[in-house]
Amino acid sequence: MRITAFNPLIVTKDAENVIKLFEALGFEKRHSLGANTGETEFTSVRMKNAEGFYVDVANVPVEKDMTLIRINVDNFEEAYKFLTERGFKNPKGDHTVDTKTNRSACLISPSGFAFDLCQHIKD
Rank of each mutant, 00 (worst) to 15 (best):
A79E: 06
V60F: 13
K64Q: 14
Q119M: 08
L33G: 00
N49D: 14
T37L: 14
A15D: 04
E23V: 00
C118K: 07
F76R: 07
I108C: 04
T84Y: 04
L9A: 03
M1Y: 11
A5K: 13
T101S: 14
M1K: 10
N59H: 13
R30H: 01
K64T: 12
E39H: 05
A79T: 06
T4K: 13
M66C: 05
S104I: 00
N90Q: 08
L21H: 09
S111P: 00
F6S: 13
G87A: 08
L21Y: 11
K13C: 01
F82T: 08
Y54V: 00
T12I: 07
F76S: 04
E28G: 13
E28L: 07
K13G: 00
E41V: 14
G87T: 05
L83A: 08
I10C: 09
M1D: 11
M1R: 08
N36M: 10
K29L: 14
E77L: 02
N90G: 11
I3D: 01
G26H: 02
A79Q: 03
M47D: 10
G38M: 04
V62C: 01
N90V: 08
Y80N: 06
V73A: 06
R30T: 08
S109D: 09
N75I: 11
D123R: 13
F88I: 06
D14V: 11
D98K: 15
K122R: 07
F76V: 02
S109M: 11
A79V: 02
L68P: 08
M47R: 08
D98M: 04
K48L: 14
